[in-house]
Every structure is written in C-alpha cells, then in structure tokens.
C-alpha cells in the first residue's frame, strides 16, 4: 500500500509490561503463522491517517530478544518514535524508567519522540503507580504521557497516533531530517525515486528534496 511517510517506532520497557500486547492490540491482528521462515512477516505495521496523509507505522518490538541486550539497543537508532512502557501494577517497572530513558536517549537520535505509557489501566485494583506519578515523570523528562489498557484497548490507538502526530509536526517544523533514514522516517514510494524496498543500508530515500510535503 502506498504511503506518504513511514515512521519507525520502537516499544521498550521491562519484560512483562505488555509491550507486545499493546502492539497486538493496535495492529489488530493475530500474528500469522510463519510457515515459510524465509519470508519475513512485518509483525507490527499499520496505516493511519494524519492530516489526510497516509502514514505507515512500523513498530519494532524487541519482545523475545530482550536478553540479547547488546543488540537490542542498536534498534533504537533507527526509530522516530518510542513507546516507553511500564506496568501500573508493578512499581519496579516504573522505577526502571530512568534507565530505559537514558538508554533510549543515548542510542537514538535526539529528536526521537518518546511517549510514556502506563499500561494495564484496567487493573485499577492492583495499581501501584499513581497516574499523577506518571504525569510528573513525563513532565520532568519532556515526554508525552498516557495510561492505556492493552486488554480493553483503552487509549491504545491514541497512544500510537498521538506519537505519530508529534513526529509529523516535527517534520513540518523541519526538525527531522527526513532524508536521513537513521531518523526512522521514510518517504513513501510515490514520493521518492529511490527504491524503498531495498533492505537496510541501501534503502535511504535519498537525494530527493525534502520539500515534497
């Protein structure tokens, strides 16, 4: 499907905070069986519309690879947005936020939009982290904040879309260099002469002027 932009996201946070469930909820599809393992499946991708433009969100979830921490860090780099997730029923996941944030900031480009997410808001009775605490943390570190429930889908759409909006605004403001793919943004195929399907290094959206949109 054609899109104007592609934004790469990462989802980070402690094991078990529901990262993959958020993604699953958002992309709204079961992960399909991978019968032919040579064909990669893009697990977390979905189109959204902002400002009447089609935008493809490609969400990079490191679930399962967390133990290979030396490598997962390197995924941060190519991301335009990050969802930093903690679990409102487990205080320690909130306490680890600083570490995650440092990590993300160190390894990513400085313009990356980070959204703080307190997940599992459906488990009010087991809440250990007050909503105000999340808000305070976000304010202090310049993040956007939201509580979600991957289970009931509350605020899940909003979390992803609001992040996309921020990124989009930054593009409009010229903050993002959309020609540098390391920033996690790609211009859609019809907007660019280069071949975006080339994996990796070769796939930079290249020489085209940034002004297309």
């Amino acid at each position: 499907m054609s899109y104007a932009y592609l934004f790469k996201y990462i989802i980070i946070g402690d094991t078990g905070v529901g990262k993959s469930c958020l993604l699953l909820q958002f992309t709204d599809k079961r992960f399909q069986p991978v019968h032919d393992l040579t064909i990669g499946v893009e697990f977390g991708a979905r189109m959204i519309t902002i400002d009447s433009k089609q935008i493809k969100l490609q969400i990079w979830d490191t679930a399962g690879q967390e133990a290979f921490r030396s490598i997962t860090r390197s995924y941060y780099r190519g991301a335009a947005g990050a969802l930093l997730v903690y679990d409102i029923t487990r205080r320690e996941t909130f306490n680890h936020l600083t570490t995650w944030l440092d990590d993300a900031r160190q390894h990513s480009n400085s313009n990356m939009v980070i959204m703080l997410i307190g997940n599992k808001s459906d488990l009010e009775s087991r809440r250990e982290v007050k909503k105000e605490e999340g808000e305070a943390f976000a304010r202090e570190h310049g993040l956007v904040f939201m509580e979600t429930s991957a289970k009931t889908a509350a605020n899940v759409e909003e979390a992803f879309i609001n992040t996309a909006k921020e990124i989009y605004e930054k593009i409009q403001e010229g903050v993002f260099d959309i020609n540098n793919e390391a920033n996690g943004i790609k211009i859609g195929p019809q907007h660019s002469p280069t071949n975006p399907s080339l994996p990796g290094a070769g796939g930079s959206s290249g020489s085209q002027g940034s002004g297309c949109c």
Partner: peptide, 16 residues
C-alpha cells in the same frame, strides 16, 4: 542468531 527464534516464538505465543 537465537534472538530471532525467540522473537518469533514470542509473537506466536502472544498472538495465539
């Protein structure tokens, strides 16, 4: 690279 095996398994687990 086993990380990828783990990731695939994780997705299958969560998604089914």
């Amino acid at each position: 690279y086993i990380g990828l095996v783990l990731q695939d398994l994780t997705f299958v687990h969560i998604g089914n």
